[in-house]
């Protein structure tokens, strides 16, 4: 199970997408979301703000619309972005979410945090660029029909729903317990650290290449 949690472009995925069908693209998209720990960590940070069904719909829709837009358009028009830089910004988004959740905008910067919904949408756009760069790396352009890109995107959404269900359940379950504050601070402090580490790793890769 642990070995599956790899956020990478595996040769197995390349093989699947060579001559792959809509379903193949859908499956690889779902797998990519389920194994993409930077996307998962960002979603975890967002989940702390989802207290009701309305919140879930609003924020997840903003994130989904954001990453779907850039995933579909950037892939279709073959917009090449440096995947290391994009992944570094995605790492930054994880850090940002932890920073915001710990109320460090007010405590450290003495300012109010930017509108969360807008930021979730903005980071959704960036996550979509990251997903697009992966898809462009994994597949041959001539075989990447718009339908296949949509398949990959739907797979991403499917994977996202699969991840969100246990995440929302876990956070809401813990919310009712007396030690929720410790759990909240521990996880969000971890998001700060993990975001910095992810960003640093990608910047090192960028410098090396």
């Amino acid at each position: 199970m642990f070995l599956m949690l790899v956020h990478d472009v595996s040769q197995a995925d390349r093989n699947i997408l060579q001559g792959g069908s809509f379903i193949d693209y859908l499956m690889v998209g779902a797998k990519h979301m389920l194994t993409g720990y930077d996307h998962l960590l960002f979603l975890l940070g967002v989940v702390f703000f989802l207290k009701g069904f309305k919140d879930i719909i609003t924020f997840i829709t903003a994130f989904t619309v954001g990453h779907s837009l850039t995933l579909l358009l950037a892939t279709h028009f073959q917009l090449a972005v440096n995947e290391f830089l994009i992944d570094a910004i995605i790492g930054l988004s994880v850090f940002y979410k932890g920073f915001e959740n710990l109320d460090l905008f007010k405590k450290v910067l003495k300012v109010s945090p930017p509108n969360l919904l807008r930021m979730v949408f903005l980071f959704g756009l960036i996550h979509g660029l990251g997903l697009s760069s992966r898809l462009q790396t994994m597949s041959v352009e001539s075989e990447r029909s718009f339908l296949n890109i949509i398949g990959f995107n739907l797979g991403v959404e499917f994977g996202q729903v699969l991840v969100l269900i246990p995440m929302v359940w876990l956070v809401n379950f813990w919310r009712k317990r007396s030690n929720f504050q410790a759990f909240y601070f521990a996880l969000n402090t971890y998001l700060l650290l993990a975001g910095l580490v992810l960003m640093a790793i990608q910047l090192v890769h960028y410098a090396e290449h």
């Binding site: 642990f2 070995l3 949690l5 790899v6 956020h7 990478d8 595996s10 040769q11 971890y190 290449h209």
Partner: peptide, 18 residues
């Protein structure tokens, strides 16, 4: 791909460390 080498043990260590 270089990313393939980031998998396996590195991910395992990363998760346990996390």
């Amino acid at each position: 791909d270089v990313h393939s080498h980031d998998g396996g043990n590195t991910t395992y260590i990363y998760l346990l460390g996390s």
